[in-house]
Design a protein around this nucleic acid. Sequence first.
DNA 1: GTCTATAATTCGATAGAC
DNA 2: GTCTATCGAATTATAGAC
Lengths: 191, 191
Amino acid sequence: MKQTTKKEKFFEESLKLIHEKGFKAVTMRDIAQRLDFEPANIYNYIDSKQALLELYLFDISYEFHDSLNNILKSSYSPEEKLKLIISTHIQLTAKKPYKMALLVNEWRNLKEPKLTEFTEGKKVYENKIRDVIAKGIEEGQFRSMDIEIATYSFLSSLRWIYDKYTGSESKINPFELEKQISDFIFTGMGK
Amino acid sequence: MKQTTKKEKFFEESLKLIHEKGFKAVTMRDIAQRLDFEPANIYNYIDSKQALLELYLFDISYEFHDSLNNILKSSYSPEEKLKLIISTHIQLTAKKPYKMALLVNEWRNLKEPKLTEFTEGKKVYENKIRDVIAKGIEEGQFRSMDIEIATYSFLSSLRWIYDKYTGSESKINPFELEKQISDFIFTGMGK
DNA sequence: GTCTATAATTCGATAGAC
DNA sequence: GTCTATCGAATTATAGAC
């Protein structure tokens, strides 16, 4: 059986609280209350509120960059690469939905220099996706379209997915979700 | 010529500031500084910081509901209705990008009872879109697919667009954007 | 309407005993 | 590691003179 230490519980519950109320809205007192101890105890686990946010964001951010880089290093075609990106994105989101939610909604609350570090990484990530799409259009695997808008559309199709794995509702099968999203991105809603 | 009163300037600059830094992060001092007067003066124009957020959100929210309802009352087919929704959504976003950004990112900062009022309206809006999609699948205009995921995908394809009209870059032609987004939603990226 | 001054509260973080 | 107590800073909002 998996042991849940008090420290693990702290990071787990803090993450959920930040997702629920937003980073700025959550107070150290909120966190302490949820864990049923005093605010001062929080500083046994983390140096500051900012450090907590940085920890969550750069952890999940690293995983996304890492998995993207592995896909890009392969010899798959652009279309196959995009499908792999969709697949790993959904798998990762299903595994860590709360961190993914923070990645989407809370990165603005980082402070310099971490904020710049993060946004630079974000740009790099998006440009890599953009390059795959551009290559796919060039090679005739995708239809001709505005590359920038295609990139935004592609990314926005994946960005909301955490919502299916936070809430208390029954979680959708990631493989079924992958099929649905993949079909939407490649063939759209029309017949 | 259009007259810009100090009051108009206040609402305009406050809106941009809230978009840039986030509602919780913006202080009354920030707003006063941007407008080059003292924090106390803000209360000549608005009762509280919360009231400011409510004003922006319910203003743009009403416009979206109103235009959606007009489209739904028409005798157009589901596919034509979705195209009109895309069209009016982009037009409205191009006209009021900063309020649209708040609609997407800041509604969580509403307090009860306004928060519930807002989220109920959001649900109603999304369910109406969902019904159009369901009808379109039923009538065979759209391919068979998971209705809930289709609805999320459709909405997420429109949600990021404010980003093209805030920033300082050259604004994209709304009609061109409409064509690109519409093609993505109905035919996807594939050939 | 604009200012100075400040009330009232809240928050992140620390000190220090046990 | 957990507590009590509290500091120091920041914030919304108000009072009241001009």
